[in-house]
Structures are given as structure tokens and as C-alpha cells.
């Protein structure tokens, strides 16, 4: 593969990862914590209503996980395309 098409393929995979992870980012915060909060609030875990929990706790835990997943995926991707030097 030429250098140029190698870079192109790398970028394409990177964008795919980013889109998937950002979809999850949107789901846990804007969807679960804001738009569908009232529906989720009918479910309870201990003292927490679920929508309230996503807004004030859950979304933040997922954010941290998302970044570390991205770090792992990208380190692998860098290696696959020889950009880990």
C-alpha cells in the first residue's frame, strides 16, 4: 500500500471509531440524562431514579470509560498502520 492510501485507510478507521464512541457519548448524556429522563425515572435502583442517576452519575463514568477505550483502540490502530514509532 502506498503511503497516501495507507494514511487514508487509517483515517477512515479512526473516524469510524470516533463516530461510534460519540454515539454512546450522546446516548448516556443527552438521551438518558435529559431527553428520556422522565421515562427512565420510573425505574429505580436503590434510592436513585434512573434518569436522575444517569444525569448526575452514570454519564460521567461512561465518559471516562469511552476515553480509555479510544486510547486502546487507537494504540492498536497506530500499530496496525505502522504509525506507532
Amino acid at each position: 500500500m502506498s503511503e497516501k492510501s495507507n494514511a487514508k485507510a487509517y483515517w477512515k478507521e479512526n473516524i469510524r471509531y470516533v463516530l461510534i464512541l460519540l454515539a454512546i457519548w450522546f446516548m448516556v448524556s443527552f438521551a438518558a440524562g435529559i431527553l428520556f429522563k422522565d421515562e427512565l425515572n420510573t425505574i429505580r435502583i436503590g434510592g436513585f431514579k434512573l434518569g436522575f442517576w444517569f444525569a448526575q452519575q452514570g454519564s460521567m463514568y461512561v465518559f471516562v470509560i469511552l476515553i480509555f477505550v479510544y486510547v486502546r483502540l487507537m494504540n492498536k490502530l497506530d500499530k496496525k498502520y505502522g504509525y506507532d514509532a
Partner: peptide, 9 residues
């Protein structure tokens, strides 16, 4: 809470 952490993603 969400605003000031979600930005890091």
C-alpha cells in the same frame, strides 16, 4: 456535571 466532563470526550 455532564457539561464539564463530557467536553473531555
Amino acid at each position: 456535571l455532564m457539561g464539564w466532563t463530557g467536553g473531555y470526550v
